[in-house]
């Protein structure tokens, strides 16, 4: 629970700080404050559009989700029947694939900012391929474990390994569906690059985030 507790503290601190900056102490019934409030123009309070704000909030929800799994992992470790897992070395290669995928998205985002349609296409293709390679690698790692007789029910560490990698993979699949729609729109042409740019940017943020989640999960698996 300590990880989740820490996460929630951080969230609370950010919300608290941000609300404080928003003058949570204002007295809205006073004339002076009322005149100041009249200057507020409406619309975005965060300097982000709704889509970006929505994505960041969603990342917060996923953080709670994986954070709680990691807490559960650590609490389950305390029970005596725990035996550590020997991670397949293939995971290192997979990690490289995911890093490359993330980097490709970053590169694509730069290309979209410059309005370079050709490079956006190439970048999207590369990012998707690396992501698919990562997923294929994860499946292969599952097979290796299975082949060596380490099943879901063999011991809790292996069960957690299947569960955490599976859920992370599912999140990546969700990202890939957005990637697929963006890529299709790009190849069909017709939609201006400005529209594509937001999708590419959101994908990039999401990919970096999933990379971070993977590094945290992989790290947890390695040190235990």
């Amino acid at each position: 629970m300590s990880i989740s507790g820490l996460f929630l503290l951080v969230v609370a601190a950010i919300i608290g700080w941000w609300l404080f900056a928003r003058q949570l102490t204002a007295k809205p019934w006073e004339q002076k404050q009322s005149e100041a409030d009249d200057q507020y123009g409406g619309g975005a309070s965060l300097a982000l559009g709704p889509a970006r704000a929505g994505l960041w909030l969603f990342l917060g929800v996923i953080t709670a989700f994986f954070g709680l799994f990691m807490s559960a992992y650590r609490m389950r470790m305390m029970v005596p029947d725990w035996s550590p897992l020997a991670e397949p070395s293939l995971l290192w290669l997979n990690t490289v694939m995911l890093i490359l995928s993330s980097a490709a998205f970053q590169w694509t985002r730069g290309a979209a900012d410059h309005g370079d349609a050709g490079r956006v296409k190439a970048g999207l293709g590369a990012a998707g391929l690396f992501a698919l390679a990562f997923l294929a690698g994860q499946l292969l790692a599952w097979q290796q474990l299975n082949a060596s007789g380490q099943y879901l029910t063999s011991n809790p560490a292996i069960a957690f390994f299947y569960l955490l990698t599976g859920l992370h993979g599912l999140h990546l699949l969700g990202g890939l569906s957005v990637w697929g729609r963006t890529t299709a729109r790009m190849w069909r042409g017709g939609s201006p690059l400005g529209d594509i740019r937001l999708s590419v940017e959101l994908c990039t943020v999401y990919w970096h985030y999933l990379l971070l989640v993977w590094l945290a999960l992989f790290g947890l698996l390695l040190i235990t």
Partner: peptide
């Protein structure tokens, strides 16, 4: 993100 003009927190 969608409060109207003048609607502070």
């Amino acid at each position: 993100q969608a409060r109207c003009r003048g609607m502070t927190f």
